[in-house]
């Protein structure tokens, strides 16, 4: 695969958003991943030329950040949080279930290139533990059963909705969103009971007081 002229135009668009073009490097690498499914050598070279750095300098940046992958990611990226809170609330079991189901370990991709599985660090959703992500969209309050269902639905090509986020698309699609391009999914409902826990409690108590 090659980086198209269209992508290069978008890379330059990202650079133009910043007072200094190098600041766009992380979004640019996200955009490369949205096209290639990983940060390819060619992607690194293109970014280096555009920003005016050596490929070694761009590689040094890309290799620092966990989200940048140096090998092709499957159609869907599945993350399972196994940091303390999620692990203790069931994340370890979810990890074991999915690892067995997909026959893949940490940072491994299934033979059919459908899934890449990753043990992820705290996803800033501890109120929704245990947490899993599909292409970085939240799958909150998971159980082993629900997690296995998510995988089988994705396999069957069924529509799937993130719990606090958009309908599930592909890893590449979401990488484009993260790179900073609109996807038209901003209005999908994403407020849940945990986010409203305090507000509901407040409303109940003020009702009772009247």
């Amino acid at each position: 695969m090659t980086i198209s002229e269209q992508t290069k135009i978008e890379l330059r668009e990202l650079m133009s958003r910043y007072p200094q073009s190098r600041s766009a490097l992380l979004p640019m690498l996200h955009l490369v991943q949205s096209v290639e499914g990983y940060v390819s050598q060619e992607g690194i070279e293109v970014c280096a030329v555009e920003v005016g750095l050596s490929t070694a300098e761009v590689s040094a940046v890309a290799s620092f950040y966990t989200m940048f992958k140096r090998y092709p990611v499957g159609k869907h990226h599945i993350g399972v949080c196994t940091n303390s809170m999620c692990a203790l609330l069931g994340g370890d079991n979810i990890w074991r279930t999915l690892s067995k189901e997909l026959d893949a370990g940490h940072d491994e991709t299934t033979a059919d290139s459908m899934f890449t599985l990753e043990r992820i660090e705290c996803q800033a959703a501890c109120t929704h533990a245990p947490v899993m992500t599909v292409n970085w969209e939240f799958m909150d309050d998971m159980t082993e059963q629900k997690a296995a269902q998510v995988v089988s639905d994705l396999r069957a090509g069924k529509d799937l909705q993130a719990t606090r986020g958009a309908k599930v698309r592909t890893f590449k699609d979401v990488q484009r969103t993260i790179a900073g391009f609109d996807d038209g999914l901003v209005d999908e409902p994403s407020i849940d009971a945990s986010m409203l826990a305090g507000l509901n409690e407040f409303k109940n108590s003020t009702k009772g007081g009247k």
């Binding site: 992820i120 996803q123 800033a124 992500t133 969209e137 958009a166 993260i178 901003v186």
Partner: peptide, 22 residues
């Protein structure tokens, strides 16, 4: 000039803050 540095692994807040800025 201001920058809002949002965690990369969270596409939904990125969507919503981008839309709010727009």
């Amino acid at each position: 000039h201001a920058f809002i540095y949002i965690r990369g692994e969270t596409p939904h807040p990125i969507r919503r803050v981008r839309a709010a800025v727009a």
